[in-house]
Design a protein around this nucleic acid. Structure first.
Lengths: 240, 240
DNA sequence: CACCCCAAGATTGTCAACCATTCTAGGATT
DNA sequence: AATCCTAGAATGGTTGACAATCTTGGGGTG
């Protein structure tokens, strides 16, 4: 296949890692970020093997951090590791996204946002507003990468603010697969629509009124479901 | 030391690998099992710190496997690890169990069981039947530990049979917290009821008719929701 | 007496070299 | 051609050491 993947971990002291709140600068986390980005961006095909020693030399670290990174990616559903056979990149099926991942995301975000309504401070709103602004800028230059990053941060901030440990942890393990899915296949709505959704969500949050927020939130997440594929699916007539 | 926890991993070379199904024998997995059992059984209090070096000497392995085990437990929501501060045991709130974990479990199992109806073989049914039988035996001797283990295997087998990678992975990360919750607050239905539920579920599975299975499944999982009194009393102060 | 600062100890994060265990691929044998 | 067998590759685990970081228990200081 292709030659060197040219992944190159940040050798600079300053990793612009703004991670959600976990250990930010550690070598292992840098490796996680690098590999996650690479996988989501499709620089690794599903089925491809990730070899510890190769990665560690390529990324300029020892095997330890790479091992930990692979375990974390496994928990994010981006790779699967088999005993004595290492890690292989995973794909996600339409079906699992629609029937499992999106519904879980709905459950998680509905609960988090409801909680956050009671606990968010002015500073939190400011942080969220910042992400909306960044998203607007990204949209102006059609920078999908940056826009999606702001999208991620938007939700991460709100869910973090809700202060629900498990909910946040689950969200962080669900999100990467959904993101990978949309990057691989057709993408979601237009950037303008995306910005609009979040701008309205922020405004609704500030009212602290669930009746304002929930419909927007549910539509925002549900809308992200992909168009009906040509694949044969179980009858969806049960929709309600 | 005095209050030694006496965790003691299998020191024998031959771990009586009960063959849970997949990853069985590796040192790291043994450590995971040991610690998970200890946490779920309440031998570690929420808030308690788990020190790598202590555990590794106590369990007779090096720090490597212990680190990996702690990361896995983090993904199962049993501990949370903070940079340079190590892992602390987590608790689960009533609210998150009811509003997030149980709904997710419902989503996951509904989908898995529906899939499994189409793919389960006679051998799979036999494996499930075996667990029902083990559960019956456990119930006769009021062996809660064994009964719960059979419960776990029952669902794990069916979900595995559904062949949905992410669904299975998510279920395995959700289950331990729910189990820990019920062990801590000791509110599970009677063993007889538990056996009955599963016996009926198995029979329904064999019909391969969703209309037979789903109601049973939903009631089985929903029934597990504990709220005894209308008023919830969180022993823990707000905040965290 | 309360408070701030700091050094020492404790613990995690990373590295390196090494060996055991197990899969995989390719070649030799029948 | 099918089977067996042997290297080589890669993961799982060990040991020992060191760097980076948090925590804690004093000593000074105001």
């Amino acid at each position: 296949m292709a030659g060197a993947k040219a992944i190159e971990v940040v050798q600079t002291e300053l990793a612009p890692v703004v991670d959600g709140g976990l250990k930010a600068g550690s070598r292992g986390q840098q490796v996680v970020e690098t590999l996650r980005t690479a996988i989501i961006a499709g620089r690794f095909e599903p089925g491809e093997r990730l070899i510890e020693s190769t990665l560690s030399t390529e990324l300029g670290t020892s095997r330890g951090p790479v091992r930990e990174a692979l375990r974390q990616l496994e928990n994010e559903g981006l790779v699967m590791s088999l005993p004595y056979r290492g890690a292989v990149v995973l794909g996600v099926s339409d079906e699992e996204v629609q029937h499992v991942l999106i519904p879980i995301r709905l459950t998680v975000e509905r609960y988090s946002f409801a909680k956050a309504l009671e606990t968010m401070t002015e500073d939190d709103f400011a942080e969220v507003a910042k992400q909306v602004w960044l998203m607007e800028q990204a949209a102006k230059t059609s920078d999908l990468e940056k826009a999606v990053e702001a999208d991620l941060q938007f939700h991460d901030i709100v869910i973090s603010a809700s202060g629900q440990t498990h909910t946040l942890q689950i969200w962080r393990s669900i999100w990467p697969r959904i993101r990978a899915y949309f990057f691989r296949y057709g993408r979601s709505a237009s950037l303008e629509e995306m910005v609009d959704d979040h701008r309205r969500l922020l405004a609704a949050l500030q009212t602290r009124d669930p009746k304002q927020v929930m419909p927007l939130l549910e539509r925002h997440i549900a809308v992200a479901t992909p168009p009906p594929g040509p694949k044969k699916l179980s009858p969806k007539k049960k929709g309600r």
